[in-house]
Amino acid sequence: MPDAANLYLFIAAALLLLIVPGPNMAIVTSHALAHGWRAGLAAALGITLADVLMTLAVSAGLGALVMSWTPAFDLLRWGGACYLLWLAWQALKTAPAEGEAQATQASLRKVFAQATLNSLLNPKALLFFMVFLPQFVSPSGANITLQLMFLGVLLALIALVFHALLACGAGHFHGRLSAGRLSKRLGSYGFAAVMTALAARLLLLGRPA
């Protein structure tokens, strides 16, 4: 476990990073607005699983191994962008014409899987874990690998609480909007727009220096 000074600094930095709008915030919010707070929470849980998996990859040195292969960054970037565009297309195809847009139990599993895969296909997320976590490791402390795992899991838990609160807040607006006829399609269109914007963001990313 890192020393107290590094731990407090890590928590403060994590909270500051979370309140800055980013891809994860957009994914949770768009799912909650389109399908309700349960879908937003499912997306938050999917992001948490991806965070834990990336923490394990970084702790085991797999992150650096993947990024050492020159085409890996571009493969992840293009794969992630194509996946996001596919999600946008699916949202437009299935935009509800009438009735409640609340997610079913089966679709909640789909949202969870989509959020997990989307995070794992974002090369910037893996790079973030590779750069951010080691800054708060105490060189004179316990095993470095265990410190990295502890910090990564702690970050994932903090993010889960934040995204869960965000999902509940956005889900409240979904409940208020769902009574309107126009809003029955608004959620799906908004989700498609967010996925397209995130795909464009991935495509415009440059290689890491």
Rank of each mutant, 00 (worst) to 15 (best):
G36P: 00
A14R: 06
G169H: 03
H174G: 05
A95M: 11
T196D: 00
V131H: 11
M54F: 13
G79W: 05
L49W: 01
E98W: 01
R181A: 14
G187I: 06
V28Y: 06
A12M: 12
R181F: 11
A95K: 14
F173L: 11
S183H: 13
G169T: 10
L151S: 04
S59C: 00
L16F: 11
A32D: 00
R176Y: 10
A44S: 07
F162Q: 04
Q105P: 15
A179P: 14
C168W: 12
A142V: 09
A115M: 10
A12D: 11
L108Y: 07
L155N: 12
I158N: 11
L84F: 08
G46S: 09
G190A: 06
L49F: 03
L146Q: 15
Q135I: 08
A142C: 13
F112N: 02
M67A: 06
G99I: 04
G36Y: 02
I47W: 03
H35E: 13
L49I: 06
N24V: 03
A60W: 12
F136K: 10
A113L: 12
Q147K: 03
F132Q: 05
L133C: 06
Q102P: 04
I158L: 13
A125S: 13
L7R: 09
F136I: 06
G169I: 07
A106M: 11
M130R: 01
A50F: 05
I19W: 03
R109H: 11
A125G: 08
L186D: 00
V153Y: 00
L117A: 12
Y8D: 15
G180M: 14
L126Q: 05
L203Y: 09
L87V: 11
F173Q: 12
Y83F: 12
F136M: 09
A197Q: 00
S188C: 14
A81W: 03
G206L: 05
A103N: 01
L108R: 03
V58Q: 07
I11V: 11
I47Q: 07
L133Q: 07
F162R: 04
